[in-house]
């Protein structure tokens, strides 16, 4: 089996396993390249009819291109969408200028907490990868979080031979990571192979492109002339800058990512 076929097969296995094991599951779609890949894999796993809702956490600060893309494909693929927003924090006027940590925590993490609680989701499919950030290298495929979204990385369940944590304690939910073994280049090669639609923000315009997307306020583009999939793949094979270098929450203070994550950040 070829490398991408094997990755695809394992991811589909994990997605089907999560659906089988948990009654109330949703997929988190940020509209970025990784979660759009998970969405594609879900469509394949369930023969085009995804049997659970797709959750988009909306901070209100996303790129207009992302909203357009989300609405277009939600319709085309017949997705059952849930849009999660922390209305209260938005009303209070929380924004990045008043502090990025608080903004991320309120508009993303707390918005997600509220949504999980409202719908009582027991498991969430997420598109994180091990090679994205050092701390993610330690994730499991099925990773429990407690009611405060705390990740007990010191006492993670063993994960052997595709036998995943399938039962959670009442207060827990499980995060499922079908793309954990994929690298950034794998994602782009797969997008090319499968012809997966992807937002235009990733392709270079006027010498710049986004390598990782989130809110307009906290993402900066990288210098790049890569305007096609082939050029992006070529660029990634030779770059020595890390993927999330344009994401300010990773850099602001030495341990901000770890803090965010222990607060429940995705």
């Amino acid at each position: 089996m070829r490398h991408l076929d094997e990755l695809q097969s394992r991811s589909i296995y994990i997605i089907r396993e999560a659906y089988k094991q948990f009654d109330n599951i949703a997929m988190l779609w940020s509209v970025g390249k990784d979660s759009t890949t998970v969405l594609w894999l879900c469509r394949k796993a369930f023969f085009g009819q995804i049997p659970f809702p797709i959750l988009h956490i909306d901070t209100g600060y996303k790129f207009p291109q992302m909203y357009r893309f989300r609405d277009e494909y939600a319709k085309e693929w017949g997705l059952r969408m849930i849009i999660g927003k922390n209305e209260e924090a938005i009303k209070k006027g929380i924004n990045p200028d008043k502090g990025k940590l608080e903004c991320c925590n309120e508009l993303k993490t707390n918005a997600l907490k509220q949504t999980i609680k409202r719908y009582d989701f027991k498991a969430l499919l997420l598109g994180i990868r091990r090679d994205e950030h050092g701390i993610r290298a330690k994730e499991r495929f099925f990773s429990p979080r407690d009611e405060d979204f705390q990740w007990d990385y010191k006492d993670q369940p063993p994960e052997l031979w595709d036998q995943y944590k399938s039962k959670q304690k009442d207060e827990q939910h499980i995060r499922v990571h079908p793309l954990l073994e994929w690298t950034e280049v794998d994602i782009w090669e797969y997008i090319k192979k499968e012809d997966i639609p992807i937002t235009e923000l990733y392709f270079a315009k006027n010498g710049k492109r986004y390598r990782s997307i989130g809110c307009t306020t906290c993402c900066s583009p990288v210098e790049s002339t890569a305007s096609t999939l082939d050029e992006i793949i070529q660029e990634l094979k030779t770059t020595d800058v890390s993927e999330r270098s344009g994401r300010s929450q990773d850099k602001e203070s030495a341990y901000i990512m770890q803090k965010l994550r222990s607060l429940g950040y995705m």
Partner: peptide, 15 residues
């Protein structure tokens, strides 16, 4: 059955 593919066989490792 593989989504959007016409298959008559499959092998080790395939979901």
């Amino acid at each position: 059955e593989v989504f959007m593919e016409d298959r008559i066989e499959a092998e080790t490792g395939e979901s």
